[in-house]
């Protein structure tokens, strides 16, 4: 198994106003990996949704919580680890519901599941909070190997 290269860390507070800056920083980090534009945009959509879930469902709208996003690359996979220090979240929240197109709720997890290839909660070494790990497989051209992003193409 090849080693993971740590592309960078983005730290921010659990405020919706932070998300715009997180998306920009993530775009800068990923632009070093020659991701196809469509892939890059889809990944940003997915990570934004994961961050929103932390703000809304882990910190329940509290604005002073810490959130850390680490980005790794290795074995032709982008790996994202999103850490928070809120109460433990039931992993069942990651199970996408059957999307009823006329119901707004549940859309974020649905998008996350559509775009990412793997998602799981990791054990927390710091004893509190949650670490959500998400993986996206890329081919040699920086295109997604499995699913998700091709649906968004024009």
């Amino acid at each position: 198994m090849s080693e993971e290269e740590h592309l960078g860390r983005i730290s921010f507070k659990s405020r919706p106003e932070e998300l715009c800056g997180v998306r920009r920083q993530l775009k800068n980090l990923l632009s070093t990996k020659d991701c196809q534009c469509e892939t890059l945009e889809c990944i940003i959509i997915a990570i934004n949704e994961a961050c929103m879930n932390v703000i809304e469902h882990a910190y329940h709208g509290r604005c002073d919580g810490d959130i850390v996003l680490d980005v790794f690359y290795g074995d032709r996979k982008l790996v994202f680890r999103l850490t928070d220090y809120a109460d433990h979240v039931d992993p069942v929240v990651l199970r996408p519901k059957e999307l009823n197109h006329l119901e707004p709720g549940g859309l974020g997890v649905y998008l996350l599941d559509e775009i990412m290839d793997e998602m799981r909660f990791m054990p927390c070494l710091h004893g509190e909070g949650n670490i959500l790990e998400m993986k996206k497989c890329l081919d040699d051209n920086g295109s997604p190997m499995h699913r998700g992003c091709d649906q968004g193409q024009e």
Partner: peptide
Amino acid sequence: NPAVMRVLKLAKLDAV
């Protein structure tokens, strides 16, 4: 536009 359509398509809402 394409940025909005991308999300609507991913959510399968473009036809709804």
